[in-house]
Design a protein around this nucleic acid. Structure first.
Lengths: 254, 254
DNA sequence: CGTGAACTTGAGATTTCTCAAGCGGGGTGG
DNA sequence: CCACCCCGCTTGAGAAATCTCAAGTTCACG
């Protein structure tokens, strides 16, 4: 695949992501494809931004997997968010200093959006702006859902729930192959995201395999029983708001 | 106290809150004091908005305590956020349906801001707009901090950390009396916020009391050893971005 | 081949939960 | 005005979930 084609395909993932959050027309799409000023390839386990910094650029994950995480004095790590291709990082972070780290989990291709371009988008492209707002709100919803998972669901439910969420998010940007997705996430990373030890994650995954719910083929996760996995994780995709584009506010049911 | 005076005092808490997030001038302050169209008094344990709704107004907590929470099929509850006086609820929620409930924990006075007024603020009052952005970012930071608390800190650390956070947030809006604050939160609610059973919360609070860290005088929490409590909760107030209230709180802002 | 990272397995330790029962004070109906 | 009742707090004890430590295996990669 030639570099230009690859880059083109990579850019369009941002469009695919945003189209889940509001209708865009051809001019919107074209604008978005041009918005990424430059790209950068990063190795795995490489920090993109560190605590205390004040990032001045907005990045988009084009390929790979990125995590926001906090490190505790004890050395423990909490992954507070995964960013998959299409996700934007630090949309408005320039107003405050970062209180956590952002780093790659796998080799990753990042696209950078200059802040002026972003501001231009927000003031002159209402449909895109609206979609960006929705993205921000859904990000918050994902946080709340993870919080209740960790707080009130059992380890097995948590894990199943996270796998369901990842599947839905990958599917929303067209990165699933039927019921398979290539999430190159380690068991330790799953543990760090769920507040579990990696040993326990390992055992739970084996249980799920034994129950015929999922399977790993290398780094790709194969979901063998999607309804079963959803049930196991009490998963309801409503909070992701994928594909429920309500029209103008006010057109809601009561 | 006359109703007008009480209302005036109540309105100004929004100003006090926002001033923590950016300098405001007299015109900004005056605008904010007028922004609340009407107020409403609610009893304890009363839902303000429910899952599936699409709130069309923005509310400000003037007095009392409000929580956002999720209910699981098992009947368990996770409180994902506390809103104390000065906090805004549903700042931009009108773009999406609610994926959780919002309800009072105590008797509460709410102020409502019409959406037109809010939009006017966002487009015509840059300093206020900036402060509102910062508030939204700090809310997100609070979520991340709670997530890592629940995920990776011990029960005692979590609880101490939450108490520290509440103290700092109350202090930021001038609702502390030296090292005492009136948070009328039950032990069960603390448990629901921290992913713990109320029995365990009870035991931890007793431990803290035994260690001379805190004390309850009715519904008011008295912090007897602030440095000790911070240490117990690995608390660092950086994520709250509340000016430089970092020093010893013995010297209250006047 | 050699090496390291990720995964796997076992077993005991620990934290936290659940169930169950008793206590206390403030509000309410008689 | 008093007794009662409910809600929130307290205490005890066994149970369950999850962790930690430790060792072994596999596999991709240099």
């Amino acid at each position: 695949m030639c570099a230009a084609c690859s880059a083109g395909a990579a850019m369009s993932i941002l469009v695919r992501h945003l189209e889940n959050f509001g209708a865009l027309d051809d001019r919107d799409r074209e604008t978005l494809r041009r918005i990424i000023a430059r790209t950068k390839d990063l190795p795995a386990d490489h920090d993109i931004a560190r605590e205390g910094e004040c990032p001045i650029e907005c990045a988009v994950v084009l390929e790979g997997l990125v995590a926001r995480y906090k490190l505790l004095p004890s050395g423990k790590r909490q992954i507070v968010a995964f960013h998959i291709p299409g996700d934007m990082i630090d949309l408005h972070g320039f107003l405050l200093r970062l209180d956590h780290n952002i780093g790659t989990l796998t080799t990753t291709k990042l696209g950078y959006i200059p802040h002026e371009a972003l501001n231009h988008l927000l003031t002159n492209w209402p449909r895109i702006c609206r979609a960006l707002w929705r993205v921000a709100l859904v990000d918050a919803a994902i946080f709340r859902e993870r919080l209740t998972s960790i707080g009130r669901r059992s380890a097995a439910e948590r894990l199943a729930h996270l796998l369901c969420e990842l599947f839905c998010r990958y599917r929303a940007v067209g990165l699933t192959d039927n019921l398979a997705l290539d999430v190159a996430v380690t068991q330790a990373e799953l543990g760090d995201a769920l507040g579990l030890s990696y040993v326990h994650v390992n055992r739970l995954l084996q249980t799920f395999r034994g129950e015929g719910l999922i399977r790993f083929r290398g780094t790709t996760l194969v979901i063998d029983d999607w309804p079963g996995l959803k049930r196991r994780g009490e998963f309801n995709d409503g909070y992701l708001h994928v594909g429920d584009l309500t029209g103008e506010p006010g057109s809601e049911r009561s």
